[in-house]
Design a protein around this nucleic acid. Structure first.
Lengths: 135, 135
DNA sequence: ATATAAACCTACAAAATTAGTAGACTAATA
DNA sequence: TATTAGTCTACTAATTTTGTAGGTTTATAT
């Protein structure tokens, strides 16, 4: 399951995609429109900005905006930044790999199964982008 | 990510698949061989038994065993019992569905994306069985 | 019968993670 | 220089995860 934080992040990003190229959007507007706790959203947007998915502008007329083509920002990337690993086991994660304690990956059936699941999942999430958030 | 509990569950089930049709296996043996905390494992096996994936026998010569063809018990079923939902969003879960608050599933891009992920994932996990845990 | 073996069961506790809040700080604009 | 709006750190509260304790029940062997 995606965390609430990740779900909020996608809701906010969806809003910003709709306002793409229309200048900065206030955090408070996003919070109100999308019913997201304001201070929580602040932290989330900050994190997304530090990861390069968003840019911001301070002071009057400021706010957040998507700084590049939303169709170039992959859903998989966003999940990794906000929630961490996508895979169902550490030992099959591409970006957060940790070897299994007490189990040999070469002879572990679960490992192989979850490798398959990871590939099937990433096959979708690496293709879908922020643009796909709005219909 | 699968919880530790689920990972332990699969490790234990793998051991029991290897001992399939060889009579009951002691919890303590599984715990020792698979390096799983004994009392935690007790609870896990109990849960698996109540879900019908295992049977047990008390007293001397007792223990746990798989009561039917391991190739008939799906990995997806086990995950649902131990960890709950497999889907990445409540609103696309088949067995643990909850509608989205503040978002219309008909016009939610994330919903559609995660529906695809769910299908791709289940396509694997509904086919793989306990038999696939051992290689 | 009785001792022993082994699973059963409930409840609890500790640790980790997630969700959300507070409040002072910095930068941009008017 | 007042106001607007994002930045940042740290904290708290809630929930979930990961275990543990300890007595109860049931089956077997002597």
């Amino acid at each position: 399951m995606l965390s609430k934080k990740a779900q909020y992040a996608f809701r906010a990003l969806g809003h910003l995609v709709e306002k793409y190229d229309q200048g900065p959007v206030l955090i408070s507007e996003i919070a109100r429109k999308k019913k997201i706790p304001l201070k929580f959203l602040e932290n989330i947007l900050l994190e997304l900005r530090k990861a390069g998915f968003l840019e911001s502008k301070k002071g009057k007329g400021g706010g957040y905006f998507i700084p590049r083509d939303p169709a170039k920002i992959k859903v998989a990337e966003v999940i990794r930044v906000v929630d961490g690993p996508i895979a169902m086991l550490p030992c099959v994660s591409l970006y957060f790999y940790k070897r299994c304690k007490n189990c040999d990956e070469k002879h572990c059936g679960l490992h192989d199964i979850m490798e398959g699941v990871r590939d099937a999942t990433l096959n979708i999430l690496e293709k879908k982008t922020l643009q796909d958030l709005v219909i």
